[in-house]
């Protein structure tokens, strides 16, 4: 087990290195010039050329790459071309809203999604199943931004219960923080609830149709015991996989949700950075996001052994 974890950590570094090279090349090959974006719409060619030279954007690519990796190993993720501030500082300023939104969404989606999934599997083919399946299908059929605008219209503009947009840091009080996150969380959760409910239902049904479940039923096990002791445990591997995997998709959803609700998070930061070709920020965010993602999935892989004793590493 310890050896396995060690091996996974080593391979995590390999994954990150790959992501690093990939991201670096992708950005440098892309057309678009940060210098021109800085200089402004009507800037002259000389003004742009001067800025390029000053920023080191004219150096050969390998030189730029080595400089970047060397600095990063020393904990320096570079300086934003635009804001002129350290990338780590810019990212850390934006982390709180994104983490708040992600964690709330995960809690809401897993709680409701797994419950719905179990409920639907328990009464498979029945009315509850059909209602929940219909919800899951519908929740999965509407684009996130459409749901967002609909909720804003209903709860913020028409009813005035909740703010339209913005974010309040948690140290300004739990109330304002939560109020500003309710609509974004609901918006972002809907597809995940649907997603997790579907996978849970499918996995549960698969397990419930196994022979040993019939045996258990024949032996007179209660439906509670059937569902939670036998079925959920065995259906756990696919469910856990999906939750782990959802995290990258979640960041994608966060990008759109942050745009709709004007939340100053990492998603907005990176989309703006891509539009401006602010390379250091894009590189920094992608490296950090992928690092986080790899770690989460390592945790998921390890947790398989807890859920399904047949899997050993």
């Amino acid at each position: 087990m310890a050896a396995y974890i060690l091996r996974r950590f080593v391979s995590t570094i390999a994954v990150m290195a790959m992501v690093g090279i990939f991201v670096f090349l992708l950005l440098r090959l892309a057309p678009g010039d940060p210098a021109a974006m800085i200089a402004g719409k009507s800037a002259t060619a000389e003004m742009i050329a001067g800025i390029r030279e000053k920023m080191g954007l004219n150096d050969p690519m390998p030189v730029q790459f080595i400089r970047w990796v060397r600095d990063m190993l020393g904990g320096d993720f570079g300086t934003s071309i635009f804001a002129g501030r350290p990338v780590l500082q810019l990212i850390s300023q934006r982390l709180e809203p994104t983490i708040s939104l992600s964690i709330l969404t995960m809690i809401v989606s897993v709680t409701i999604g797994v419950s719905f999934g179990i409920l639907a599997a328990w009464r498979a083919g029945g009315l509850v199943d059909r209602i929940l399946t219909a919800f899951a299908t519908l929740g999965f059929s509407v684009p996130v931004f459409v749901v967002g605008f609909f909720l804003i219209y209903l709860f913020a503009i028409t009813a005035h219960w909740l703010p339209v947009q913005g974010y309040k840091p948690i140290d300004h009080g739990f109330g304002p923080w939560l109020v500003h996150l309710i609509l974004p969380t609901v918006t972002l959760s809907i597809p995940y609830i649907a997603f997790i409910a579907r996978i849970t239902r499918a996995s549960m049904l698969e397990v419930l149709s196994e022979d040993y479940m019939r045996t258990a039923a024949a032996k007179g096990a209660s439906s509670y015991s059937m569902l939670f002791h036998h079925a959920l445990k065995n259906a756990g591997v696919p469910i856990l996989t999906v939750i782990g995997l959802s995290f990258a998709g979640l960041i994608g959803g966060v990008v759109i949700t942050e745009t709709v609700f004007n939340i100053p998070g990492v998603g907005r930061l990176v989309v703006d950075a891509i539009n401006n070709r602010d390379y250091p920020i894009i590189q920094g965010v992608l490296i950090l996001v992928s690092g986080l993602y790899v770690l989460i999935n390592l945790a998921v892989d390890l947790s398989y052994t807890l859920v399904d004793p047949r899997i050993r590493y």
């Binding site: 402004g40 635009f82 002129g84 703010p163 304002p176």
Partner: peptide, 30 residues
């Protein structure tokens, strides 16, 4: 919680500007 959505106070003006301010030097950029 609902009180939080009340309009901003009279001595503070909130403005949605057309573009994000990402560079602060008005000579360096146009």
């Amino acid at each position: 919680l609902r009180a939080q959505t009340s309009p901003t106070d009279a001595r503070t003006v909130r403005m949605a500007m057309g573009n994000a301010l990402s560079v602060y030097d008005p000579i360096w950029t146009a």
